[in-house]
Amino acid sequence: MELLNYMRLFVEVARAKSFRRAADALNMPNSTVSRHIAELEKTIGLRLLNRSTRKVELTEAGEVYFRRCQSIVEEARIAHESLRDVAERPTGTLRVSMPADFATGYLAPVIADFEKTYPLIAFEFDLSPRPVDLQTEPFDLAIRLGPPPTAPSTLVARPIAVLQRYLYASPEYLRRAAPLTHPNDLDRHVVCIVEGAARLGQVARTFYRGDESVNVMVGTRFAMNSVALSRALAIQGVGLAVLDNVLALDDVTLGRLARVLPGWSLAPVQVHAVTETRLLPARARLFIDFLKVRLREP
């Protein structure tokens, strides 16, 4: 048990790259963490960490040991949490990274229902655009839009939803803009382009109608990395926005937006729950299952 505890401390220090930050996270004195890591290194007979006044880095042996310790510590934690599964009262803090637009546009009501169902679970959400490292950062899962990640190979991607995407514009924009009856007409229109790394310029887009597909180059004065902003600009009559039908539903109902090129759609976007391992704590498994059911409802 002592060795397992030392391994847990080592994993926390390796993730934080700091004895002090690890000690704060574990609510332990910094000197205790440092002493236990030194005892671990003495037991193993190898230096695991290179220490300096500015940072802590893994040695080559430490890299190997860290990869093995992560899974061992995680399995031990899950073994303890599995006892709570028996009582069907999962607890702990669910840590999720997800895109801000998707979180606010889709997941807010789902999360509200989930927390009512499981009142003992607490939540930490990271909505920053940066891609978190699930191997070294303490997240249970990440919600990602687009194709499943292929690297690193240890990641597990579970499909939870598919978003159908269409063009929308305000009635005001459509009244004053050039006729738009085919995707080829888009060269005379303003399209708000949403890319992961927003930049101006023409981008290729493929539109589908049944078995028919058309490739067009779309240019814009507005490039961004926010679907919510493209939707807001479309409502203001600035141009066209690519939105999924659920996100646009309220605006269409209220007459703020109208579907454009109703027979045509863009390629749908896949949504995945990505985890570093298949061994998940109860709170993460329940949350993923909850998302699958709710996001597939009409």
Rank of each mutant, 00 (worst) to 15 (best):
A273F: 04
L120G: 01
A87R: 13
Q164P: 04
T150K: 09
F10M: 08
P109W: 11
V194C: 06
A14F: 01
T154G: 02
R8F: 02
R144C: 07
N5W: 08
N5F: 09
G201E: 07
G196T: 10
C192N: 08
E88Q: 14
P262A: 08
K55T: 13
A112P: 00
R47C: 05
V293G: 00
A108K: 03
P159N: 08
V252A: 09
I37E: 06
S18K: 10
I72G: 00
T136E: 06
Y6D: 15
E212V: 14
G239S: 04
F123C: 06
N184E: 10
L141R: 03
Y173Q: 05
A241F: 01
S97N: 15
R35F: 07
I121M: 08
E137A: 12
R256D: 04
A76F: 08
R15T: 05
Q164A: 14
I143C: 04
P109S: 14
V274Q: 10
V86G: 15
L257V: 10
L186Q: 05
G92F: 02
R95E: 10
L127I: 08
Q270L: 11
E124Y: 06
S226C: 06
Y6P: 00
H36L: 12
R188S: 03
Y166S: 04
L9K: 08
V13M: 06
E137K: 12
R259P: 08
F123L: 14
L145A: 01
L254E: 13
A87P: 01
L120T: 12
P149K: 12
I37Q: 02
R84L: 12
